[in-house]
Design a protein around this nucleic acid. Sequence first.
DNA 1: GTGGTCTAGACCACG
DNA 2: GTGGTCTAGACCACC
Lengths: 143, 143, 143, 143
Amino acid sequence: MRITIEPNNGVPIYEQLVRQIKYSIAEGTLVSGQVIPSVREMAKKITVNPNTVQRAYLQLQSEKILQALRGRGMAVTDEAVQICEADRHDLLKSRLQAVVSEILGSGIEESSLQAMFADALQHCQTSRTKAETLVHSESETNE
Amino acid sequence: MRITIEPNNGVPIYEQLVRQIKYSIAEGTLVSGQVIPSVREMAKKITVNPNTVQRAYLQLQSEKILQALRGRGMAVTDEAVQICEADRHDLLKSRLQAVVSEILGSGIEESSLQAMFADALQHCQTSRTKAETLVHSESETNE
Amino acid sequence: MRITIEPNNGVPIYEQLVRQIKYSIAEGTLVSGQVIPSVREMAKKITVNPNTVQRAYLQLQSEKILQALRGRGMAVTDEAVQICEADRHDLLKSRLQAVVSEILGSGIEESSLQAMFADALQHCQTSRTKAETLVHSESETNE
Amino acid sequence: MRITIEPNNGVPIYEQLVRQIKYSIAEGTLVSGQVIPSVREMAKKITVNPNTVQRAYLQLQSEKILQALRGRGMAVTDEAVQICEADRHDLLKSRLQAVVSEILGSGIEESSLQAMFADALQHCQTSRTKAETLVHSESETNE
DNA sequence: GTGGTCTAGACCACG
DNA sequence: GTGGTCTAGACCACC
């Protein structure tokens, strides 16, 4: 599981952590029953305050995505996958919807929006290609 | 000029006001030299505290979009239009970029993203058509 | 008498007017007993609110620089010249003092200050030369 | 860091605070990355309302001189030093320029101005010498 | 009437 | 604990 946190990007750190764990579950990197890193471990790994990690785990627990196993840590629940899949798609779709709505609402032409979208898409593809290259070189020293 | 504020939607009130004034300028509802409603007037109109309006105006002033005319009010500067136009496009583009990036980053296929985008677009068009109908009926009783 | 007002330069308009009238008296453009333009006339000439002119005249009156002549307007008092001369020198000196003090107080070297001062001096001389040229060409179409 | 606020000297309190923090950065008392006193702490120290401090910090943040570290405080940015240095010099120079310009514009001879300047300089030096003496005696009971 | 500054006190999200 | 937002009400200078 690979977690990347960007402080000061507006989204709270604990929220970024929640999302990324959900994504990991949705894409199968984390599977049902698997025990995730302890609060302290995770906190050290991504260098944030343990309280922040705790908060993220608590939220995931309340969403029935994680469950506490006394003395052993937190594990992914059985329902987690389906919750996350649904979540992910709906959440992201509504966010996209909101932005599109605001853009059109601000008086920008639909054609301009199409252009923006194409740009955004292309921009992501190039940066993702670069990222894959990084992943390959990293894979040899994977933890 | 039509301002609509939604408290508790996450975006600070003063920020909503800033954006809507920028949009009004960008789309030509507000023109250079025009004096906008006074702090107290605007505060009463959108029923928020005058200090909150003051803060929005202050920010617009520091961005050289508004200028204070002593004892007369705040007016739109000459450069305002170009600043707002550029602003608007860049701001919205970066927001779209962010969402697209997160969607692709979460493991969703590009084809799904395309579908989402089409859906969002269509959703907006239908609601906008409805809005236009409203505008037409309003135009007869315009203030 | 030539009055030039710059709105929005921080100094209140009425204060600018007060100063410039004092300067005019100090340099002899306005002499004892002379009747200055009426409030309305002056207001129209420099395109400001008559109240603002009134305020300036009131202040000058309270400083015994102007006196009201019933039905004829405001005139320069006999003591005006000496008051203005003293005023002007002291006021300007204390302002210069304040700036010098702040510059040195902010950690800037005395040598840098000397350089700044020389620059400022030179800058003024060139712009004043230009101004004189303007005055010459204006003098033919003088009001 | 030593902050001294004079209320009622014309310059707004928040502005005085902004300037003094800039000066502290320009002269090296505050360095990049350093966390400055919290809003509440500073407010107590200089006995003003926390909102007033907040406003100063906000302005410094918008000038990219401070950055907020969520839950930890406000820190000096990396670019702060160069911004402040440039700022300080330009700001003070333009103030000196303005005074010199007004003095010459008011009909005072350049030689008189030179004399004034020399006086101001000397006046500062004597008071600064006195201040240094104070600093020496303070250094033994430094906080 | 206008904008500008300041205080006092509250609530929230974040770490 | 931190910063951020908001309200309520006051006073000022300016036009």
